[in-house]
């Protein structure tokens, strides 16, 4: 009888010594696979879909311009027009020039030709705004442009 009683003494505690190792492994995975979030987007930014896309691997050589309607428009205003966001601020088309010059400063001159401007525009913004930006970019010879899209198709 005593033989059986011995086994009923309760379960041994689970060894959690390897738990930190597992968590550290996850931590390192995320540290390597992700990038820091640089800006918070101040405009509505619902990107269109496209199939013929190219990935931009060089974050260092990319300057991002956000375009879209304001997230909360003032009361009574239904169509406030598109806003342009550079870095963390809402800006106007005229500021695009300086923004690109600033971006160029941190890049060695032999790589400046490979710099791309990424236009992240909301699906409902107008082409007029985009074309104003493109005009500015042409003026300062920043000719490589990418229209940010998601992978997929949304033909009507």
């Amino acid at each position: 009888m005593s033989k059986f009683k011995k086994n009923k003494k309760g379960l041994p505690p689970i060894n959690t010594a390897s738990l930190p190792d597992i968590v550290f492994m996850l931590l390192f995975f995320f540290m390597v696979a992700t990038t820091m979030r640089e800006t918070s987007v101040l405009v509505k930014n619902d990107l269109p879909n496209a199939t013929e896309i190219k990935k931009l691997s060089e974050k260092r050589l990319t300057s991002t311009i956000y375009v879209g309607p304001p997230i909360s428009s003032p009361e009574g205003v239904t169509d406030a027009g598109d806003l342009i966001q550079l870095n963390d601020k809402i800006a106007s088309v005229k500021d695009v020039r300086n923004f690109i010059y600033m971006a160029r400063e941190g890049v060695p001159s032999e790589e400046q030709g490979a710099m791309t401007t990424l236009i992240k525009s909301d699906i409902n913004s107008t082409v007029g705004t985009i074309s104003d930006i493109k005009k500015e970019l042409r003026e300062i010879n920043a000719l490589k442009v990418t229209y940010a899209t998601r992978q997929g198709s949304d033909k009507k």
Partner: peptide, 20 residues
């Protein structure tokens, strides 16, 4: 790290603007 980082890689349609 989960909160402060993003995983998305930017992608899109590339175009070259005409020179001025």
């Amino acid at each position: 790290f989960l909160v402060t980082t993003t995983m998305d890689i930017d992608a899109g349609i590339s175009r070259r603007l005409p020179e001025k």
